[in-house]
Design a protein around this nucleic acid. Structure first.
Lengths: 235, 235
DNA sequence: TTAATTCACTTGTATTTACAAGTTATATCA
DNA sequence: TGATATAACTTGTAAATACAAGTGAATTAA
């Protein structure tokens, strides 16, 4: 018995095709009627999937013409390294887990408010560093509520997107969030992870990411060395 | 004959009630069935309106329980000073225009791509500084395409939101965008405007904001002194 | 008095049907 | 050969219908 709603199967299929380049910017997706046939569903189901792709910026719909693929989805909450796809080969962009996911209590002085279920469930804590051409440029500390994430602590996060993992394995989507952004001088820990000296200006983001799962937010504390590569976000 | 779709009338009505405080955070909206009766429409129409409110962060739906009002809608592209509403009185937050809006040609080395209509129309350029308790913390350089913005250069921007002005006067809404974020050392100009010394780390954002008007993007180059106040964004 | 069950609500998922309005290709007419 | 009308597609809007699954209050049983 497949518990995944049909509209979501259609959505994931189309989204994957767009991400894989089956459809490129400017292409027109198969019509709603064609998608009904291909997926063996009805138009409202297909339209719900297309609504989601529209909201996330993957496509733009034109009455009478079709659904046009856009090059840049609105990556809610997604940050990347500016120029990643064109300037840096994928093999020179590496994500390394420096502290593996581990269940912990929330820090007493955690700067974001927590829901009661979150507070009671503790958190999964891990740290990652992202390197470009061997040079560390991101240092990220993540906290997830320890809520219904079976075997999360055993998953390999190296070179994997946390957002994709949450969505594909746990059906948790990032739906929005908030962030505080600062320019700071690096602490000793950050200096060590990013391999910078004390005078380097460091970009610091404190982020709370809301999700499709109730009472479940993802928290991220990010430090970036942006001398060579800016941090890029779309919204 | 009313050209506005019914789902949008329902959406605007509910959104206005939430914004006006008829419903507060944590309140449960009338059920879908009740909204059908009130607005004389059917469930799919109501659900489309609720979908939109959900996507924009106004409400969160709970199967079996109802639609819960959330306090913070997703403010696309809006940045503010962290803690503004609770920590700083409105009278201590001042926006000052340091270069009034003037029509210019686009800089030859403008870092964002421009649409052909934008390139051909030139731009409206202005600079603003935002101060908290008399202390400058934001320095913003803005470029708008000089396209169908009657009398823009004569408008007073002190203590006015550019987004609100665009939406209310010119019916232009920010619909999304992208940004590069960096931590830098301040140039001399930035040092002067923000009243900082050369060692202060400065937050720098280069932003392209997409709008509801075709071929019309808003560009912003922002420098922030974040020692006292982080930059806050929700998405 | 407490626990279990039932009921009446809620939202979630999905189908079927119909017509409106936009776009583009094709056919027809001058 | 070019202009106009038509046809065949597209997405947009909306109703009607049905059942699944979640939630909390009320009722019943122990």
């Amino acid at each position: 018995m497949n518990a995944t709603p049909q509209y979501r199967l259609v959505y994931e299929s189309l989204r994957k095709h767009i991400e894989q380049g089956v459809y490129s910017e400017g292409d027109i997706l198969p019509s709603e009627n064609e998608l009904c046939i291909v997926h063996n569903v009805t138009r409202p189901t297909v339209r719900k999937a297309l609504d989601m792709l529209t909201n996330e910026g993957f496509i733009k719909r034109r009455q009478g013409l079709g659904s046009l693929v856009q090059s840049k989805p609105r990556g809610i909450g997604i940050l990347s390294i500016a120029g990643t796809t064109s300037v840096i080969g994928r093999e020179n962009l590496v994500t390394r887990v420096v502290v593996k996911p581990v269940v912990k209590r929330w820090p007493a002085d955690f700067p974001f408010g927590l829901t009661k279920p979150e507070r009671e469930s503790g958190c999964i804590y891990f740290e990652r560093v992202r390197l470009v051409n061997g040079q560390p440029i991101f240092y990220d500390i993540s906290y997830l509520p320890n809520m219904n994430l079976p075997r999360f602590t055993r998953r390999k996060l190296d070179n994997h997107s946390l957002f994709n993992l949450l969505r594909e394995v746990y059906h948790i989507k990032i739906t929005g969030g908030e962030q505080n952004i600062k320019a700071i001088h690096a602490s000793t820990t950050v200096q060590n992870h990013l391999d910078v000296d004390p005078s380097t200006p460091i970009l610091h983001l404190e982020r709370k990411l809301e999700t499709s799962r109730i009472y479940f937010n993802v928290f991220s504390f990010l430090y970036c060395d942006t001398r060579e590569h800016a941090l890029f976000g779309s919204f």
